[in-house]
Design a protein around this nucleic acid. Structure first.
Lengths: 337, 337
DNA sequence: ACTTAGCACTCAGGAGACAGGAGTGCCAGG
DNA sequence: CCTGGCACTCCTGTCTCCTGAGTGCTAAGT
């Protein structure tokens, strides 16, 4: 149905349109790529490609531009992932090396990805529920107030003030801290709730009210709250020309945590680089945007997603390469710390 | 030199232009505001105002628009701060109430300000150097690795991994922790470096190498690093029409931490609402933007700044009101926690 | 001295008209 | 199945013209 040359034509159209932004015509195609046929032949091929829905003409006497479906075919069958250059890889490494805490890692990753791809970068904070408890700390703030700090193996630090029903002595705090660490250290956060359910029995009756307050805060705030943050950067890379209805829509979507979360959540397998093109994003306002994402995380298991967002007219092979490489390096950094 | 009516004319021009975005002519002015004179008179006044540099004509046969200088006069002498409505105040309160940690407070503040003013909101994290140490925690991670956590009275938690030159026992960690807390609790971060300089003497000789590593990390990372973060939000509120050279410039400036910091740093007195108009911002790319800021913080002392950024054509009285109100509420929230 | 009416002038912006050109579809011949 | 040729479409830029908003100036009125 689509012979090799037609595929080559589609590939050429995508490449030219991505680099120029102008609809591409049959003559330009044979000139720039060495297809050994005449423009007329290409026109026939293009007619077929258009009929099949891979390309369209913005108006009668213009060249063709790829449709979402055309890009889809391109990324699925006509292009691979373009590896980064050595210089780029070194740049990533040195850029991420200096990070001193999780916030910083995420911020740097965003800047890095945005700069590397000249698109908008999107990075999700490593999910709490898949990481494990490294340490729990209780700090007395006042007579009936504790600061609870939970440290995960991904370097994430969560904190919360706990208001106690009764006053508490230093000694009790120490005991409680020891109990928590003994029982929770190394546990996956997803399992914490179950473990905590059994804890009250192991607390002296007199301390149970206070302990219960602490327990419930842990469960409510740290475990149930899987409100995983997503940050973005590189909005300055958005070019108004690529978004017919203006940047407004896109910026609005990006600033809406919930939308971003859903966007990332939808993307399939964490282990590979996923591409969502145009209307495949079920988000109003990102109909003319594409999203290239993958999972990343410490160790072999992916904890969260990162990627880039740009116009459908995007250099997919390069973007995919950058996303994959950055994800790997970030994973390494997280594993080390 | 500028009699009352001329000032009234300037005020009217600013108000009309802010609300409509169109250059405003003499006829429209007398119609919409009840100035009891003829358009011709107004024209004479406008000629004077133009000569003085408060307004300009985009082209010969158009109405006038205010210059930076015109806006300046407007905010300094012709308008006050417009207080928020009761409903708005209640909205602020409930919106900020639910915050559970510093990050969340800042994020909510950004969203709130952006929504309230329909502009870009800019919030600086409370400065470390002006806050005080509430607690320091050391957590052994591995044989020669500690996690250092510093908690400030503004609820900020800073963390850092420390690589030790020699292995360290639990006991030594406990001692060190006790020493640090004994000496640093309640100190202003700005003073921490001085205090730490005297600490090595008070550590047993055998432990000094490790202690020194911890000390230097505290000083380097937590104290010297006054890299105070600034976050922004509401970029979707930027209207391309107001920025002749496109949003690109503005977005770039906003995404550059350093630029934002300088921008906020320049603004004067923390205790009042400050307005910088157009080219008063010494930042290339924000020449056609205005910035309304004020300080905020727990207690009476301001710790950092927040504000909104928008086109020079901005509703200053309302923006100033919102900024002031939000700053107060955030201050309260921080003081409570 | 200030205000006002009248008038000529300027100029941005929109509507038409027009030419040029890029690109197409189709047909007939190799 | 490919190709050259050709008629056709329609976007784009340019030019002109016109209109209307808005001005500055002058002369007269208070």
């Amino acid at each position: 149905m689509l012979d090799d040359r037609k595929l080559a034509v589609l590939r050429a159209i995508v490449e030219d349109f991505v680099s120029s932004g102008e609809p591409v015509g049959s003559k330009a195609l044979v000139d720039r790529h060495n297809l050994d046929v005449s423009p007329a032949t290409i026109r026939n091929d293009m007619a077929v490609l258009e009929e099949q829905g891979f390309i369209v003409q913005p108006h009668t006497s213009a060249g063709r531009i790829p449709t979402d479906q055309g890009y889809r075919l391109f990324v699925d069958r006509l292009s691979g992932i373009k590896p980064l250059s050595g210089a780029e890889r070194r740049a990533i490494e040195t850029f991420l090396m200096g990070a001193y805490d999780l916030d910083d890692v995420v911020m740097r990753t965003v800047r890095l990805l945005a700069q590397l791809t000249r698109q908008v970068a999107v990075v999700q904070y490593p999910s709490l529920s898949r990481s494990t408890v490294r340490h729990i700390e209780l700090v007395p703030l006042a007579d009936r107030r504790l600061l609870l700090i939970l440290i995960t193996d991904t370097g994430r630090v969560e904190q919360r003030v706990v208001d106690l029903p009764a006053s508490i002595g230093d000694e009790s705090v120490t005991q409680l801290r020891a109990l928590l660490n003994a029982c929770l250290d190394g546990r996956r956060l997803a399992d914490v709730a179950a473990v905590i359910a059994d804890l009250p029995e192991r607390v002296e009756p007199g301390e149970r009210v206070n302990a219960a307050a602490v327990f419930s805060v842990i469960v409510e705030t740290l475990v149930d709250r899987n409100e995983e943050r997503v940050v973005f950067g590189g909005a300055a890379n958005l070019t108004p020309a690529d978004f017919s209805r203006g940047l407004h829509e896109v910026l609005e979507a990006l600033e809406e945590q919930v939308v971003l979360m859903r966007l990332l959540g939808d993307s399939g397998d964490l282990a590979v680089v996923t591409v969502r093109i145009g209307a495949e994003n079920q988000v109003q306002g990102l109909r003319s945007a594409s999203l290239v994402t993958t999972g990343y995380g410490a160790g072999e298991q992916s904890l969260a997603r990162l990627g880039v967002l740009g116009p459908t007219r995007m250099d997919y092979p390069t973007a995919m390469g950058a996303v994959r490489a950055v994800a790997r390096y970030v994973g390494q950094i997280l594993a080390e710390s």
